[in-house]
Design a protein around this nucleic acid. Structure first.
Length: 577
DNA sequence: GCCGTTTTCGGCCCGACTGTTTTCAGTCG
């Protein structure tokens, strides 16, 4: 049973937490967290790297010691270092750290003084008023602990980017109307285009007399004010979405925007670069260390320039090599929404869509697209009224008639064909041969073993008619975990067979994920950014696929659906051939 | 525990807010 990257990362995070409770050197604690983050950002399977004899110490944040621990975990499934920690510190204490307001120091105090090891014990002690008697704790802290435990179930909830946008944009518009407010921008993971966000970080610049803080906490969707100072406030909206507002002066806008767009790893790297140049970088600007003089910070570009870098797009700021690429002049020219020429995964009311083929085609044309492929479900997906051979044959004729009649948009004949459990496709070859493209998709048997699932998909891709693997991980954000499959192997197979992978733009899918997009790009596998649309509004969702692609370092050239119809046909033909 | 065109030792990003204090530790992002 192989251990996967995520499990290694989780072990390091746990070790960091337990070490922190033990009062270990904070930098050592951080080293473990850094290593965990570094591993999560890998596009490659650690097992494979080990097999191929790659030097793990070349990974950022991994040195000799942690490389040895990684090898130990991969081979034995655990590490003696964590086993030892568990003997010294109860593993359950880690859960206490998740309570807002409880960090390692307080958890340690609770454990040492009140022998609290579990959430239940914590709750009981708080109820009996025993916590406020501890030094460093008070009545308010105790009350907050009780409230947090009550809300614990929802505390880890993340919001889809698409949903956060629906709350965030009206709030931004509202803040812009407040007296003395100049700029208002949503920064943070939202600006980096992440598929889900834990909260919204809003940055505003104002004149000094602006009542923006009062107006912010008085917004009629605010349910709870967590904290409020003169430059920073945190609230919860009724929807449960947490929103942080930070206010800075206009001339700090660039520095603050950079600072609050993050992520942490990126910011730390930028500051280190600053340090090397005798500069201190914070949210207020770039300062010379020797005399404290402010030298930059009005625009984001000026912050980058101060450390000798070109502007790095927000979607790349994850501390995963973008700074090194910028230094080397190798930053990608990221694909944009305007580069898209078509959409190869569109449904009609023949299966589970709610518009006719013509309506979908006209909506696509309206959106500036030059072609779409109608790719309705195949017969096995009964719940979505999948098409059988007869209905698909009729649809092909309908598309021929429409193409004769419609100008400015071309409709391709496709099908989203179920990949059956054994890897067969849901239509016979004779049927597939009549299509312009075949999109293979997993819609069932999500819980096969890694070995079976991988073999299933590879076998489907063996079909000479297979064009694109739809939503490769089959995940549904906040709802269903990704299938367990060897994605690097699948990407390799796509390269060998000349197939493509989809970036599905549905807000809940956003699949392929960013790190695998990056791997596909490195392997020369083109990605097809598709809406998987079911209504005429679906083309608005393509922005999500673009976000995903940009976080995966993709350029226009790396995306199949930026091709002209003529070039696309050539690409598809070489697959079919 | 990691890292290094100043270093193999001695650094490690930095500031705001809260609560419990009476000048600051702890937590958070």
């Amino acid at each position: 049973m192989p251990v996967h990257n995520e499990e290694v990362a989780a072990i390091f995070d746990e070790m960091a937490d337990l070490l922190a409770i033990q009062d270990a050197n904070p930098f050592r604690v951080r080293a473990y967290h850094n290593a965990a983050r570094s591993i999560r950002g890998l596009g490659k399977d650690l097992n494979k790297m080990l097999e191929e004899g790659e030097d793990l110490t070349r990974l950022p944040g991994i040195g000799k010691d942690l490389a040895a621990k990684i090898a130990e975990i991969l081979i034995t499934g655990h590490t003696k270092a964590l086993d030892k920690l568990h003997q010294e510190v109860p593993a359950t204490l880690e859960a206490l750290l998740k309570i807002p307001g409880l960090g390692p120091k307080r958890v340690k105090s609770l454990y040492r003084n009140l022998h609290i090891k579990t959430l239940k014990q914590l709750e009981n002690a708080a109820r009996r008023g025993r916590i406020q008697q501890l030094p460093g704790f008070g009545a308010k802290t105790e009350q907050r602990i009780l409230e947090s435990i009550a809300a614990h179930r929802s505390s880890e909830r993340r919001f889809l980017h698409h949903v956060a946008r629906q709350y965030g944009e009206p709030l931004v518009a509202y803040l812009k109307e407040v007296h003395g407010v100049k700029e208002v921008v949503i920064a943070g993971s939202y600006r980096r285009g992440k598929e889900t966000v834990g909260d919204l970080d809003i940055l505003a610049t104002t004149r000094e007399d602006s009542p923006v803080m009062e107006q912010f906490v008085g917004y009629d969707e605010v349910d709870e004010v967590v904290s409020k100072g003169s430059t920073r406030a945190t609230v919860f909206l009724r929807s449960g979405l947490q929103v942080d507002l930070r206010v800075v002066a206009q001339n700090s806008f660039g520095a603050a925007l950079h600072y609050f767009t993050g992520n942490k790893a990126h910011n730390i790297q930028i500051r280190r670069l600053g340090q090397q140049r005798g500069l201190k970088i914070n949210e207020y600007g770039v300062f010379r260390v020797k005399d404290g003089k402010r030298v930059n910070g009005k625009t984001e570009a000026s912050v980058f320039k101060a450390v000798g870098l070109p502007f790095i797009p927000p979607e790349l700021r994850h501390g995963r090599g973008e700074i090194e690429a910028a230094q080397a002049g190798h930053l990608p020219q990221l694909v944009t929404l305007a580069d898209l020429q078509g959409d190869l995964h569109v449904h009609s009311h023949a299966s589970d869509g709610n518009a006719s083929i013509e309506q979908m085609a006209l909506a696509a044309r309206q959106h500036g697209l030059k072609y779409i492929a109608i790719s309705d479900h195949s017969k096995s997906l009964r719940i979505a009224h999948g098409l059988d051979e007869n209905r698909l044959a009729q649809q092909i004729e309908e598309i021929d008639r429409l193409n004769e009649r419609l100008d400015g948009i071309t409709i391709l004949k496709g099908s989203e064909v179920d990949i059956l459990e054994d890897g067969r496709l849901d239509f016979p070859e004779g049927m597939l041969a009549q299509l312009d493209l075949v999109i293979g998709a997993v819609h069932s048997k999500f819980r096969l073993s890694r070995r079976q699932q991988t073999r299933r998909i590879l076998r489907a891709m063996d079909s000479k008619y297979f064009s694109i693997l739809a939503h490769p991980s089959a995940r549904l954000l906040e709802e269903r975990d990704p299938i367990d499959a060897d994605m690097p192997r699948i990407i390799e197979a796509a390269r060998e067979r000349g197939c493509f992978l989809e970036i599905n733009s549905q807000p809940q899918r956003l699949d392929l994920t960013d790190t695998y997009c990056q791997l596909a790009r490195e392997q020369g596998v083109l990605l097809s950014i598709n809406s998987d649309g079911h209504s005429t509004h679906c083309f608005d969702l393509l922005y999500g696929g673009i976000n995903q692609a940009r976080r995966g370092w993709l350029e226009k050239e790396d995306v199949l659906t930026t091709r002209s119809l003529q070039e696309l046909r050539k690409q598809l033909k070489s697959t079919m051939g």
